[in-house]
Amino acid sequence: MREVSGEVDMAKKPSRSRSAQARAGGADRRPTDDGGHYVGARFNGPTDAFNHFAQDAKVNRGRYRAMEDQWARAKAEGKRGWFRIVPVYEGESQRPSLINAWFTINDREHSIQIPNESGKKSDAKQ
């Protein structure tokens, strides 16, 4: 995956692919990883393998989820939102080391760099 972008849209009935999540990252997947989504199921993210990546479980359930929660709250408040996500890979790894995300909520721009490692701080600009 080089990048993904789109308008924030909430799914009426989110759908997941447990097998794609389990295979995310291939041989580069770590025991502490989840099968993360670039675009989560709650946002109508595709169930295809290309939408999944090996993501540190604490990051997936922490900072990445917090970003998605911000999108969901904005959408619930009737605001429009757009996003662009660009993963950064080192060498031939199938596991990104960093996730760059830019998003706009009602014309207010945000950006964040989320390291795919527990304990490393995100760099947010708002």
Rank of each mutant, 00 (worst) to 15 (best):
A11K: 05
Q55T: 07
R84G: 00
R16F: 00
W82C: 04
G25C: 04
I114M: 13
N100D: 15
E68M: 06
A74F: 05
W102A: 11
Q55W: 02
R23L: 00
G119E: 09
A20Y: 00
R108S: 14
I112N: 02
K75Y: 12
R84H: 15
A54C: 03
G40P: 10
V59T: 08
S17A: 07
P96I: 03
S5F: 08
T47Y: 00
Y89S: 01
E90H: 02
S15M: 11
I112S: 01
E92D: 14
S5T: 07
G25H: 04
K121W: 10
A41I: 06
G36A: 08
V8P: 03
K12H: 10
M10I: 15
G91P: 05
S118W: 12
R80N: 15
V86R: 12
T47S: 08
K79Q: 14
D34S: 13
D9G: 00
A66K: 03
W102V: 10
M67R: 09
G62W: 02
I112Y: 01
R16Q: 08
Q113S: 14
W82Y: 15
S93V: 00
F43Q: 11
A41D: 15
A57H: 10
P87D: 03
E117V: 15
I105C: 04
G45Y: 04
D107S: 13
A101C: 12
R65V: 05
Q126D: 13
Q126G: 06
D28Y: 02
D69W: 07
G26V: 00
R42D: 13
R108Q: 15
A54D: 03
F103R: 01
Q70S: 14
E3D: 13
G36L: 03
D28P: 01
N44R: 14
I105L: 14
G26C: 02
R23Y: 00
K58G: 11
V4F: 09
A74E: 02
D9R: 13
R65Y: 02
V8H: 04
E109N: 11
H52Q: 12
G62A: 04
M67S: 04
K79M: 11
P14F: 08
T47E: 13
R42Y: 09
V39C: 06
G45W: 05
P31G: 04
A22H: 10
A24I: 03
K120P: 05
S97Y: 05
V8S: 05
N60Q: 06
D9Q: 12
H52F: 14
A76N: 13
I105Y: 09
Q94V: 03
K125E: 13
A72N: 08
R29H: 02
R73G: 05
G36N: 07
P31T: 02
G119M: 07
R16W: 00
E92R: 03
W82R: 13
Q94N: 08
H52P: 03
N60R: 02
S111C: 05
N106C: 10
D107T: 12
R18G: 01
I112H: 01
G119D: 09
S97I: 15
G35W: 05
D48E: 13
S17I: 09
S118M: 06
A41E: 12
N60G: 07
A57Y: 01
P87S: 02
A41N: 14
E7I: 09
A66W: 00
G45E: 04
S19D: 15
E117Q: 15
N100Q: 15
D33C: 10
V4H: 00
E3K: 09
G78N: 09
